[in-house]
Design a protein around this nucleic acid. Sequence first.
RNA 1: GGAGAGGUGGCCGAGUGGCUUAAGGCAACGGUUUGCUAAACCGUCGUAGGGGUAACACUCUACCGGGGGUUCGAAUCCCCCCUUCUCCGCCA
Length: 422
Amino acid sequence: MLDIKFIRENLELVKRNIELKNEKADLSNFSNLEETRRKIIQEVEQLKNERNQVTREIANLKKDGKDATSLIDNMKNVSDKIKELDDELRNIESEIYSITTKLPNMLSEKVPAGKSEEENVIIRYWGDKKSQPFKANHIEISKKLGIIDFERGAKVSGSGFSFYIGKGASLERALIQFMIDYHTQKHNYTEIWSPFMVNSASMFGTGQLPKMADDMYYSNADDMYLIPTAEVPLTNFHRDDTLKIEDLPKKICGYSPCFRRESGSYGKEVHGFLRVHQFNKVEMVNFSTPENSYNQLDILVSEAEDILKALEIPYRVVLLCSADTSFSSAITYDLEIWSAGEEKWLEVSSCSNFLDFQARRANIKFKRTPNSKPEFVHTLNGSGVATSRLYAAILENYLQNDGSVLIPNALKSYCGFDSINL
RNA sequence: GGAGAGGUGGCCGAGUGGCUUAAGGCAACGGUUUGCUAAACCGUCGUAGGGGUAACACUCUACCGGGGGUUCGAAUCCCCCCUUCUCCGCCA
């Protein structure tokens, strides 16, 4: 959420930002509504002031046993008028609310203007692309090894769901464990195991609601959502909290399955693991002071990179252009790993600085000293990293001549085996 | 799912329609005193939104879990919801 005063004073900037992000938001009514709102506030608050004073007089008269009927009759009219204006105000505020809650975060100046992912900027590469002994993508490899069953996933749940079997399941579990250990032991994160269903207040806090409602699984009977990322429970962990400045930056990480309806996405990268309805991910979340958040973002990106380096998977870091930067984010770096089978780059991590956008929605503050005014923190998060595409890349990059797959060195102790054989 | 008891400022806690402009205490912060620490004493001490200001100051309104309602007036009365605890039922 943007500060309403900021919107009022920078309307043109906000409009330009909407265009840059390729979002749709109608601000044509905003100034009028906002002006009306303040006019009504002034009017109704003056009446309330009058009511408070006369109410005190009535109390005094009654205490002295005197008659107050004429004052009371008068106040009936004032009260009716207040009720009327309060209703009007409520309507206008809800109109303003429905506009402002749909306004995307302001982009950082560092974000290049651009209309599609073509205009993202590649920041750096790491590692050499491996060539396969024979050409095979992760679907072919995993079928041959019998470690993934996409068809049974479709039978039991639907397309976009799959079973992991035997060493295939172990590898997935090992990956999660490895990543959590890495972040807690080497990057000083506190591990959190969170709920995987959350209420709508939480979805609003991180910015999924109201815009992304159709992309999430929702249980109507419970008014709860399956989380699309652990960002939601982890960031909302501190909803309505005031943090101590000595605890900042506060770094928490956690595993969660991620559920995404991906409505309307069929036709693009849907086969195998590239786009699924349920996948696993370790998420890093950072609560920072405003002056530190960009610095923390650089650290966050490097922490996600460390995972890929440890697993020796070639990757590149990409700065997203304006239209590719999500609703809540001010700036986002993606990590893309090389898929030797698909021969393309696959996104496995998205690291963003949200500035105070989520903090304002979720009401997360900090105080500089015990007596100073609370300020909104800056929130950041990044995948560290998502497993399914990483899993695919491991199969494709570690494929051997005989069709077996070597386990990356860093994972061997977690798996308890060195390779997956035919 | 059923029954009952709760939810008041950072924390504890009083408050059953007007003497509340939320008592009192603790913690925190500033100061006085003091060889130092402590204690004592004095003061400050919520959030949001209007108005106002160059910025302060100042001022008004709202907020006692959330939302409605009754009333001239609601922390207090009524309705709905959320949540915590206790007990019962069901359950991996």
